[in-house]
Nucleic acid binder design. Sequence first.
DNA 1: ACAGGTTACTAAATCGTTTTAGTAAAACGT
DNA 2: ACGTTTTACTAAAACGATTTAGTAACCTGT
Lengths: 339, 339
Amino acid sequence: MAKKVSIKDIASAAGVSATTVSIVLNGRAREMKISEAMAKKVEKLAEKLNYRPNLFAKGLRTGKTHTIGLIVDDISNYFFGHLAKVVEEEADKKGYTVMFCSSENNEGKSRNILNMLVDKHMDGYIIAPTTFMLPELEKLIAEKRPTVLIDRYFPSLNSNFVTVDNFTGSLEAINHLASKAVKKIALVTNDTDQLQMQQRIDGYVSGLKKNKLPLDPSLVKKIPFGRPEAKQVKDLVQFFSRMKGKFDAVFFTSNNLGVAGLEAFNLLGLTVPDQVSVLCFDDNDLFRLGKPGITVMSQPIKQMAKKAVEVLVKQIEQADSPLSHVVLHTQLIERASVQ
Amino acid sequence: MAKKVSIKDIASAAGVSATTVSIVLNGRAREMKISEAMAKKVEKLAEKLNYRPNLFAKGLRTGKTHTIGLIVDDISNYFFGHLAKVVEEEADKKGYTVMFCSSENNEGKSRNILNMLVDKHMDGYIIAPTTFMLPELEKLIAEKRPTVLIDRYFPSLNSNFVTVDNFTGSLEAINHLASKAVKKIALVTNDTDQLQMQQRIDGYVSGLKKNKLPLDPSLVKKIPFGRPEAKQVKDLVQFFSRMKGKFDAVFFTSNNLGVAGLEAFNLLGLTVPDQVSVLCFDDNDLFRLGKPGITVMSQPIKQMAKKAVEVLVKQIEQADSPLSHVVLHTQLIERASVQ
DNA sequence: ACAGGTTACTAAATCGTTTTAGTAAAACGT
DNA sequence: ACGTTTTACTAAAACGATTTAGTAACCTGT
């Protein structure tokens, strides 16, 4: 039934050796002085027999897969889903396929995933790293496997990365809020030591200082990075009702926190922007089209993904290419949630 | 640097043959009468040398990869992103990893992707098929490769599938609209012959009939399945303004059409639900949390994904398991967009 | 006419597993 | 005490490609 055509079948059909067939099918006929006629004949036969190379055999011999591994926190998240999509498109253009995995920000899964991808011999890796991955990443880099970190990186790790200027983005977000005469800005962020979040928090702190606004630690809420969104909403409902009247704006450091926050406002009957102004790091359909539109500090997702693939492929295809540190800029999109 | 430990290294370190090592590491020691002591020794050594099997060699020999391929229209879409996430989780539980691909609903990509996955020897496939894929799918099924179609299927193709009762869901959506005294219901759908869309359209038509509402073909808008969302919005703006006053409700057959529709309403200054009622097939953050909340006919995404993996894995692990046709039910979630 | 080069190929090794077909040595039954 | 099983392993083939190291046959210049 499933008749598998191998290189030997072509070879015997053409009356030549497997070597010749391999050379021809890898496009090295000219180079290897295979006659034009023979090359044509072999190609025709391969076509006719519907030959498909066995990628295991190929991989075993060459170690190459033309596949890149992409690790993100959560593929169903707006930011990562869109990132993944563009990564796939760009990789496809350059002849690579991509294998996605979600780390779920969980220690066990983070480490397993990376090992699993290495076992599958990806040609390169694009990773939104969790802090748990640091040891594995160090190994990866030490073994000189092409790797690009995305969204965040480790200052201690000498790797390629593509990120956004989180500090400045956050600072400008606070400047914007301050310019609208908002006085008491709460911060909702994740309880994680990932760099991008730290930088966004630092931006918030600096922003307050620069605008001579007081920093009130009780207005900073760190939500555990866990999964269930319902739990996040509950935490926020509690937080916002406890702090009622003590804040007139909230800055969310990620798009999923922003979504949970809006849900909490709904439940509490708090209206945006009348009772509370909102600004969120990272954009989303809900922010763009919901009423009121949510003012956001948006990330150039497409560019990030493009750059990451570009850097990675360069790294894969020329071993000695130097490290790239790409820092893109965020953009304030004013909508109706700040007044 | 990258010292690769092979089974032979373990064999010579343990003073045994490669065969023995292979048997032990595949957990067949008992069965193959390898002594307890030797098994322990080999396992210890494998651990100590940090042995990682070469998956190419393994795959070349066994033909198995413990990987399943998932093809969706677009990984950045809410429905497919969430589906993919659950597929990955469930597959992980059963010891499989998953390789995602987006077909982009495009002919060339659709066919390439499937061939590529077959070349990579997936153990099984979960596919939201495009009509372009039919010939490849027929081949897949004929070759008895474990396959589960999801979201839609081909009546002519004798395959497993997991879907939703699109006809009834759509019918009930129209019933709901009609029950609110809405009279002129426009339909916005995709210009595709995919089955799920046809069924939703049929549900709309039957719903109108059942409620003795006239079917006005000029109120049915089919948007080409193409990519650029901006273009979809433009089409809809045009359609809605041309038909102004001729409809008092719109039923969207997919969540991304709904998003584009809301954007169009924004641009036209049409208010929901005062000037137009809205009901959308499939849910979304925007519909759930936006103001007004959009009434939707929601799909049980989690269940669909779970079922698909369950059926697929059964199919993979026991070749003769019978075909499964799973049809789940949609659920009306009433919010504020219908009045 | 013959060394030396080029052309057009091929045989065999190799990648790292799994599996088939054994085989000595020990244990067992009568 | 001798044939048969069982135990505890092993050598070699196989999976399907790529690559190394050739080798005849033909050309070319002197």
